[in-house]
Design a protein around this nucleic acid. Structure first.
Lengths: 201, 201
DNA sequence: ATAATTAATACGAATGTTCGTTTTAATTTA
DNA sequence: TAAATTAAAACGAACATTCGTATTAATTAT
């Protein structure tokens, strides 16, 4: 009966920092900016986080966890292997449109600058999850029998590329319109061909 | 008869900064580090560059120019459309193995942190060059008739992804071994099918 | 009363940059 | 040839600023 009325301190910090670490960079956002931007005092910030670096780590963990949850939920509703791939694309594109800063932080922020020992995002939970799905499908013979690295690159490469172009503002329109053609291209390059089955209409 | 003997100041700075901006980040490399690392005095550095930011810009321009030159040369020796795609892959993979820091700087460095008004690398000269080639081939009917954005993502996405994985040290071995399988996957997803022509052996 | 938050101040370390000076090498003058 | 002059190149201590962080005492909320 309380938490709803006011945003928690951590939430405020999360929202402000996700936005601004992505937009102008970790090193260009000072603790004083965070204080002003959230309306919190510097003391309050340090009451919840022992250091600025810990904020960055908290953002990273929360962001990857959030993305993973969304992907899992989306994949959970999919029927069949192709549907799984499609649902991943749709979900990643949706997240890109609806939470661009979240995606930007997860994909882009050069963690080496300020989180030296964090895994590169490409091997963070969401991407590991997708990769393990693919590994299984190669074993089952759904995908062409290819190296997992190659398969993973052929599937995730185009998706991530579209997302990056959008986040860089090089694509002006909603990228969800690319979901189907990208999906079809990916299927062509990775799935075993089945004689009596058409992929596109 | 003189320039050969000593590395120019700009060359020294280029080499040190490409290495270290990529490795530990622009904001973690101070002017004092550059001074110590190159053996140049701080004064000398500022004699050649008006600011640290201008160094970053110089690196960016030089790196993209270098990569573009190499791609052009490699493409120039290719015969036929598929060969062009293959030569781009081979060249980008070669550069990744032989000049990883150069590639890392061009692909990765989050320019927003310190070069606010520079183009994202994905739209820098080398990538624009490749894209315009593809646009032409779509018009000529070599590629499937698809949106240039989609085609570009299907071609460049997997390539860049492999490169990134390698630069993140998530792939331990030389990525050149992936050149052919990646090439074959890309062809499948983008090239028009020609009935009496097999792509792989 | 305890915990949470604020506001203000202060700290030292690190930053990018400046600037007066020195070194070096080439050119000009004598 | 030797001395004088010049200008570019290199130097590095010092500067003002900003950073993350710490500390304080006062205030508010539970």
């Amino acid at each position: 009966m309380n938490k709803k009325i006011k945003k928690s301190v951590k939430t405020k910090i999360f929202e402000y920092c996700i936005e601004n670490f992505s937009r102008i960079g970790y090193n260009n956002v000072g603790v004083r900016n965070i204080s002003e931007g959230t309306g919190l005092s510097i003391g309050a910030i340090y009451y919840y986080f022992p250091s600025k670096e810990k904020i960055a780590r908290f953002l990273y963990d929360t962001a990857t966890e959030l993305i993973l949850e969304n992907i899992k939920k989306s994949v959970g509703e999919a029927r069949g292997d192709e549907e799984v791939i499609k649902s991943i694309i749709v979900e990643l594109f949706r997240l890109t449109e609806e939470s661009p800063r979240l995606m930007e932080y997860a994909l882009y922020v050069k963690h080496k600058d300020f989180l030296p020992d964090v895994l590169p995002v490409c091997s963070s939970k969401p991407f590991e999850y997708i990769k393990s799905f693919m590994r299984k499908k190669i074993e089952e013979g759904v995908f062409e029998d290819m190296d997992i690295v190659v398969a993973s690159a052929l599937v995730m490469g185009p998706i991530i590329r579209i997302v990056q172009l959008r986040l860089d503002n090089l694509l002006k329109d909603d990228i969800r319109k690319y979901a189907v053609p990208i999906f079809e291209g990916i299927i062509k390059s990775t799935f075993k061909k089945v004689a009596n089955k058409k992929i596109s209409k």
